[in-house]
Simulated assay, not measured.
Amino acid sequence: MNKKKSSFSTQGQRADIGELEIYRILGNRYADAVGPFVFLDHIVPKTQTKVNKTGTGAHPHRGIATLTYIISGEDEHFDSAGNYAMVHSGGVQWMNAGNGIIHDETLNYDSRTDSRITHAFQFWINLPAAIKAQKPAYLAIEGNEVPVKDLSEGKGWMKVIVGSFEELRSAIPDYSAQFLYHIHLEAGASFTTEFPDDVEVAAFLPLHTAILNDEHFDAGDFIEFDRNAGTIELKNENNEACDFILFGGERYKEPIVAEGPFVMNSRLEIANAYREFYNGGYGKIDYEKQRAKISGSKA
């Protein structure tokens, strides 16, 4: 099978929130979506000197699933459907916003470890029109629950955050063919995987340079590939381990209309999303009640 060719590469734009240093990777000037993925923010590794108490602030979503993958730190989640969880390093927060929800997240260093580094990714996954009309849903997945496998010959490991790979299967629901992999390669190691026709695929290099299908790319590069069937070879020629984020899926075939925190299928649906939000249709977050419910269950 032929190697897939890169279509373009680009770097993200700064989009900081409070003390968090963030780069907006997707959308970018070349692409609005990769498969069902319409958004990617990289919260870059940073030593945290003080506890973040304000988070992102309560805000609405509709028509998408948000996915926060925490490399290092702990992420506290609240939403107006009554969901609350604290997920730690290696874990995932997934929220299907469905027909409307308000949520808030606060990322801090992991209180269970000596590390004060915070590092995470947030994706938005576009939902099919039928799912956009359903009630919201939520999953909290700790790091030890994320499917992982060691690669042969001590080359590294691979985690399946969304979708499946060989015997690995994520607990996050699939509403279309989609995948999100975290691949960790030791110095000098390589890994190859293949994709069929009409699958949209992108890679992101969060921290190190790497070789992808014989092309050199820099740390911070987002790379999209052609849609022909073919393989992608990831190669780490550094003197230290290197991480790759590989994601995509089948092309989203319904119209996409995005504005602010809403991704719908028409301008009218966007207008309805705003109207229902301003009319109080998404509910409210009861921070103290949600925290107390979790504390009470541990007593």
Rank of each mutant, 00 (worst) to 15 (best):
D41F: 00
W157R: 09
K132L: 08
G143V: 11
S297Y: 09
E224D: 08
G281D: 01
I223H: 02
Q178Y: 03
P147Q: 05
S170K: 07
E142W: 08
T106H: 04
M264T: 04
A140E: 06
L168E: 07
S176G: 13
L180N: 07
Q178R: 12
S190E: 13
A187M: 10
K4C: 05
P60F: 08
T193E: 14
A31L: 13
H88N: 10
H61C: 02
E186K: 15
T106W: 05
N83P: 02
A171R: 15
I294G: 00
E288W: 13
F191H: 15
Y69T: 00
N279F: 10
G35D: 01
G27Q: 10
P261W: 09
K4H: 05
V44I: 15
E269F: 06
T49L: 14
G100I: 04
S152W: 06
T47G: 13
D221C: 05
V160A: 07
Y175I: 02
G100Y: 06
K253Q: 13
D197Q: 13
Q134H: 09
M95K: 01
H77G: 03
I70Y: 00
I232D: 08
E76T: 15
C242E: 02
A299I: 11
G220H: 03
Q13H: 09
R291E: 11
L151F: 08
Y287C: 06
L151A: 10
T54M: 10
I232K: 12
N279V: 00
K4G: 03
M158N: 04
S297D: 05
F244N: 02
D174M: 12
E19G: 10
Q134K: 14
E254Y: 07
T113N: 02
K289Y: 07
L107T: 04
K3F: 12
N272R: 11
D41G: 00
M86F: 06
M1N: 07
I131F: 05
I71L: 14
N99A: 09
R169G: 08
A58C: 09
K298E: 01
N238P: 07
T56V: 15
G281T: 09
L207K: 11
V87K: 06
R275V: 08
M1A: 10
M86C: 11
S6E: 11
H184A: 08
R251D: 01
V263N: 04
I22K: 01
N96R: 15
P206I: 06
I43D: 00
V201I: 14
N213R: 04
I270N: 03
A85N: 13
L212I: 15
L107H: 03
